[in-house]
Every structure is written in structure tokens, then in C-alpha cells.
Design a protein around this nucleic acid. Structure first.
Ligand SMILES: [Zn+2]
Ligand SMILES: [Zn+2]
Ligand SMILES: [Zn+2]
Ligand SMILES: [Zn+2]
Lengths: 149, 149
DNA sequence: ATTGACCCTAAAGTAAGCTATAGGGTTTAT
DNA sequence: ATAAACCCTATAGCTTACTTTAGGGTCAAT
């Protein structure tokens, strides 16, 4: 009906999302992105819903979900009958908590790095006096290590 | 002079940071944590500065720095003469930018997940009507998430 | 003097997530 | 009709970050 019913081959799908043919075939072996129809020649055929799902996979991956976790998320959707809202909500809550913990950790080291960054003069002289390196240094460890090399 | 000059063996160090002996020896092969002295029997000996450095390694790892990146950071410190404040500050700035990007990505998917979480009833019936699953399957989410790439 | 908890090295194995290679069919354009 | 640009399967190889195995020494306590 609409131009939404477009069908494309694996190379086109890969290009659309900035991935590679090999990676998409790899995801298929992992059960993440199944093409359910093939051309007469045996070529995998995809549509917009595959594109949607693939975008989700890539975004989730980008923020630290493993392929296993992504498969679980997608799997919930494919077997709705076998799960309850409670189960889905609990899993989602756990993931949110994990993300929150990760954000906190990142903000913590971000704060440390930023503090170091602000303190450094950024000049072009030797870094022997660099406050960043002094902060990173573990007291006399560097001397000990330097002596060995 | 002080009781800060305590010396400990690999098992004690591992325990202090909640890691394992094998991991610490592995870090040594990767040049991340060198023990500078050995006991008569050939046991690795560590002190508080090793503990400091190891804590830094683990914290950096926890927030997504690779061992290679951590080695570079530590390496700057061991070869101060060969670097400038400018170089160190630039590298640090890049890392901060990377962390900021990662935080933004996490907050983005966090927002999506939270929205789904709030909308789900969390009941014990079949998840066929679950709004989370419906949202995951919808093109809305993937479009929204994918749009940031 | 023997037991158990440590320590050592060297090397192989594991898991995740791809990436590359080999060998071959298909489509498209000239 | 032939060559480039695709597609296919199967399998091997790579990187990261460990973990395990094998075969031994060392140390403190009984
Ligand atoms: Zn400076
Ligand atoms: Zn500096
Ligand atoms: Zn519900
Ligand atoms: Zn629900």
C-alpha cells in the first residue's frame, strides 16, 4: 500500500544502519535478527520491521547491553504468552537500576578527571610537573617502575 | 618509618581489592601492575602504592576504559619527560568527552526504559497486552533511539 | 615430618563479538 | 556474454580480558 512495504537485501539493510553484512549474518546465527523470507536465489529479504528491530539492537548494544540481554528483551516480545507483566516490569526495573549504577560510576570518574583537567596548565613544556600525572601517580611507584626500564 | 610501609603478597593484595591472584598476575603480563621486588622465595611483594595504582586500574576499568587505555594513562606517568602538559590535558579532555557521550547515551535509553516501566501495570496476567513489549516492538522507540546516531 | 594454604611459571582454554577466508552461485550493466 | 558487484554456506581466526590446568616450590602449624 505505502512505500513502507519496501523489501531489501542484506547489503542494503547493513548500509541503512551503518553495519556490515557479516555482522547481520552473525546476529542471525545468534537469533537476534531473523529474516523469514528468501528470494528465489536464496537471498535474505528484509523489511522495515527488521530495520526497526535492528536499530533497537544496535542502540541497546551501544549503551552496554550484551547480545544475550538484547535477545532476552526481544524474546519477551516473541513469546508474550509465556510471560507476565510482572516479569517484564521486573526485568526492566533491573536494567534501569543497572543503567543508573553505570551512570553514577561514569559521573564519579568524570568528576575526578574533570578536576584533574581543570588543574592542569596545558602548556607545551615537559610534563614532569603535570598535576594530572601527579594525581594519577601512586606515590613512589613510578620511580620504582622507571628504574626497571 | 610509618606503618604505611606495609608489604604484602599477591593474595593479600587481591583480597584487599576484591580481585583474584590470577587477574593481578595477568595485569602484570600486560604491564599494568608491576611488582618491583620479590621475596627470597620469589614471591611478588607489594606496598600501598601498588594498592593505589590497582584501585585506579579497577575503577577505570569499571567505567569502561580498556586495559590498553589504562596502560596509556599510567604510561604517561612513567615517561613524563617525553610528554607535555598540553598532550596530557588533551588526552584527558578526550576521555571526558567520551564519558559525556556515554552518559548521554545511557540517559537516553534510561529515559525510554523508564517511560515503559511506568506505563506497565506489572500484574501477574499474560504479557500479551504488556505496554513494554508493545513499545519495544513499535517503530516509535527504535526511531527515537536510532535518531541519535 | 607432614599437611594445608600459600606462592611460582608456562601454556592452554573460555566467552563475547565480531572479521576474514574459501569456494561458489546470482544479478546487473555494458 | 562477461565482468563487477552482489549474495550464499561453512569454517577459521582475531581481540579483549580473563580463567584454568599442570607441575612444582614455600611456609606455618601440628
Ligand atoms: Zn603544566
Ligand atoms: Zn599538566
Ligand atoms: Zn499489564
Ligand atoms: Zn506490562
Amino acid at each position: 500500500m505505502s512505500e513502507n512495504s519496501a523489501v531489501f537485501k542484506i547489503g542494503e539493510l547493513a548500509k541503512k544502519v551503518g553495519s556490515t553484512v557479516e555482522t547481520l549474518r552473525f546476529y542471525e546465527t545468534k537469533g537476534l535478527l531473523q529474516s523469514h523470507s528468501r528470494s528465489a536465489a536464496g537471498y535474505r529479504l528484509y523489511n522495515d520491521s527488521h530495520l526497526t528491530q535492528l536499530s533497537f539492537i544496535l542502540q541497546a548494544k551501544k549503551v552496554g547491553f550484551s547480545l544475550k540481554e538484547i535477545k532476552y528483551l526481544l524474546g519477551l516480545n516473541l513469546a508474550k504468552e509465556a510471560h507476565t507483566c510482572e516479569e517484564v516490569k521486573t526485568y526492566t526495573g533491573e536494567k534501569i537500576a543497572e543503567i543508573d549504577a553505570k551512570i553514577r560510576d561514569l559521573q564519579s570518574i568524570r568528576g575526578s578527571l574533570h578536576q584533574m583537567y581543570e588543574a592542569c596548565c596545558g602548556g607545551t613544556e615537559k610534563a614532569t610537573h603535570c598535576s594530572i600525572l601527579h594525581t594519577l601517580a601512586a606515590s613512589d611507584l613510578s620511580t620504582e617502575l622507571g628504574a626497571r626500564q
